[in-house]
């Protein structure tokens, strides 16, 4: 009876160790970040408008080459709070559509265990203002000492996501907004 118990405890140790090891494996099988920077930039001859969020989240799974981003719309900060209010209330309708996301797959082959700068194309669904669009977005993945970081700049046409700009402010808000996404992963 005693020996059986001991045998069981050995198993238990083994399994616990396995679980720990598992945890380590998990850290290598996915890269996560809670501090992705997202900058948006609207430029017209009349006015340049910038806003920034610093706490978007992202996950990269090397095995499946999945890459996902999510940003709470309300986390985008403008210099004028009235502008920020209009952005949330009238353009993005962030109470109805609180987040924007991109879920895609990396089309190119990357060796995530090797240091390097990889230019990648990511195909996926960009969801913004409740409207999904299939996009292929270019970006750069940098790996140094097995630390991963990304950088991407792409354009979003307001009309693609049914974001309406009234004719009165048409000259102040660009029809195509430039979006920059960057950050380091763990």
């Amino acid at each position: 009876m005693i020996s059986l118990k001991r045998k069981n405890s050995i198993w238990l140790y083994l399994f616990s160790f396995g679980l720990l090891f598992n945890g380590q494996l998990k850290a290598q099988t996915s890269f996560t970040s809670k501090e992705i920077k997202v900058n948006i930039f609207s430029s017209t001859p009349l006015e340049d408008i910038k806003a920034q969020a610093i706490n978007a989240v992202s996950v990269i799974i090397p095995k499946s080459k999945q890459i996902v981003f999510q940003i709470p719309i309300k986390s985008l900060v403008f210099s004028r709070s009235l502008m920020q209010e209009h952005f949330n209330e009238s353009y993005m309708e962030s109470d109805k559509f609180p987040t924007a996301s991109f879920k895609g797959n990396i089309l190119d082959n990357i060796d995530f265990s090797k240091d390097g700068i990889y230019n990648v194309n990511v195909k996926g669904i960009l969801n913004m203002h409740g409207v999904s669009k299939e996009r292929i977005i270019k970006g750069v993945i940098t790996i140094t000492n097995s630390k991963l970081s990304i950088n991407s700049n792409f354009n979003v046409a307001c009309v693609d996501h049914e974001i309406k700009i009234p004719s009165v402010v048409f000259k102040k808000i660009a029809e195509v907004i430039s979006v920059t996404v960057s950050g380091n992963y763990q």
Binding site: G23, K26, S30, I61, V68, K103
Partner: peptide
């Protein structure tokens, strides 16, 4: 832990 995909991790 193995099965966790990108969405649930996010």
């Amino acid at each position: 832990a193995y099965c966790q995909d990108a969405d649930s991790l996010l």
